[in-house]
Amino acid sequence: MIRICDLDFAYPNGPFRLRLPELQLPRGTHAAFIGPSGSGKTTLLFLLGGVLTPRAGHIWAGELEITALEEASRRDFRLRRIGMVFQEFELIEYLTVRDNILLPYRLCRRLRLNGAVVRRAEALAEKVALGDKLDRFVDCLSFGERQRVGLCRALVIEPELVLADEPTAGLDPASKALVVEALLGYARSSGATLVMVTHDGDLLPHFDQVIDLGSFQEAKP
């Protein structure tokens, strides 16, 4: 379960401020964050992932209070237990598709890269129609293909929490369908919690919970 309590966040040099008195996302929930640009959707996602730290308040992931963790532990938690899909892919240009997918295993000493992991990466790539592009560099891929590489990288560690920041923005319908199907499919099959930031109203019926950060009202789909 994700639980937020009295959250208060502000960027050091800017007027933006995010206040969230309380939010609960039960384990296995598929939640969507919606709202206008600047309403703090991505910021909240990064706070949940421990990329940003709040000025005040608490965030729990299950029994673990993320906001109470040291930076090193927070990074380690993020690498091992959270799969993050970024709006701008955040891929490494000098790595092949395969190496980009396996990157978390190269960065975290506690994740062991072995044959099973490589096979899992290849199966994920196959599922999102990247099986024949594993040895290509990412700058040779289309927009949609790059997003799918980012998706595979997020899922390869088999995370218990998936945070996706507008993963379908700018994608063609085929790529969008592949990404959404892969995310929801993984969340359903593994029981992981999925939180997705989206502007795409067509996707909302797929989610159990839709949180409108613009008005900060929890809405039913």
Binding site: R78, F86, P104, C108
Partner: peptide
């Protein structure tokens, strides 16, 4: 930007 990506993913500065 690449370094920021690695940090976002969870890589330490030392790494």
């Amino acid at each position: 930007r690449e370094m920021e990506t690695l940090v976002k993913l969870g890589a330490s500065r030392g790494r």
